[in-house]
């Protein structure tokens, strides 16, 4: 049977690249996005590329109490979920957040709390059927707090710890939990940054994500070398680290 896949934040470049890989295998997909018109354009494309069924649902991470309805709709439409990829998020403006408690809270609501709502609901449903994979797009930025990006980093770091605990809890239930930590990815979210050799395409990241889901990995650094870059960054003593502008 082909996979039943829920993708939240389906208009993100990484999510779209992952969706195309599942579509080519004949998967049934449920795309949740704030911009349903754009998700509909993606859905048409996925149908042409071989998806068995594609459904679009509205989801806005800034609106409280929407997770319940989304998870129920996706679960019913797909008749159960084999893979849920949560890919929505924002890249907060760090200096603006540093100056505003409200902006910081807002960034954390979008990047952490809305994700945890979805994870809790999906985990319980998957646990009840003893099957499924929960995959969340985190970031290497969550591995160490840095002055240039610590609100985003805190959000992604929080998710990583939550996922670690969730994975532990769900071992007996047979549900897999994967935290994805991409490095620099050439997407619209990063369009303004100058690019170098460390940058990867959404297609490369998507290939790694699908492979990690298939082999049941719990943490994925993509591309692979970020595991070692972040190991070094985590090991730098604080006294030295705080003298850098990282």
């Amino acid at each position: 049977m082909s996979a039943r896949v829920l993708i939240v934040g389906a208009t993100s470049a990484i999510a779209e690249a992952v969706a195309r890989r599942y579509a080519a295998e004949g998967a049934a997909l449920f795309l949740a996005a704030r911009r349903t018109d754009r998700a509909a354009a993606i859905a048409d494309d996925l149908r042409v590329r071989g998806a068995a069924v594609v459904t679009v649902g509205a989801y806005d991470a800034t609106v409280p109490d929407t997770a319940d309805a989304l998870v129920a709709a996706a679960w019913e439409t797909l008749g159960g979920i084999d893979v849920a990829l949560i890919a929505h998020g924002s890249l907060p403006d760090q200096p603006a957040c540093a100056a505003s408690a409200a902006l910081t809270r807002q960034a954390l609501e979008i990047n952490v709390l809305s994700v945890i709502d979805l994870l809790t609901l999906l985990a319980n449903r998957m646990a009840s059927v003893g099957h499924g994979t929960l995959a969340v797009i985190g970031s290497v930025a969550g591995d160490r707090g840095r002055q240039s990006n610590y609100v985003y980093g805190a959000a992604k770091g929080c998710l990583a710890i939550f996922m670690q605990g969730l994975a532990h809890r769900l071992v007996p239930a047979g549900v897999r939990v994967l935290t994805i930590k991409p490095g620099f990815v050439d997407t619209p979210m990063t369009a303004a940054f100058p690019k170098g050799p460390l940058w990867a395409s959404p297609q490369t990241v998507a290939r790694d994500i699908q492979r990690a889901i298939e082999r049941g990995a719990q943490v994925l650094y993509t591309p692979w070398f970020w595991r070692w870059i972040m190991l070094v960054i985590r090991l730098i003593p604080t006294s030295i680290f705080q003298r850098t502008r990282l």
Binding site: A13, A41, I42, D44, D45, V48, R49, P188
Partner: peptide, 9 residues
Amino acid sequence: RGLDRFLAF
């Protein structure tokens, strides 16, 4: 290049 979707075939 980001406009790389099929509408129908």
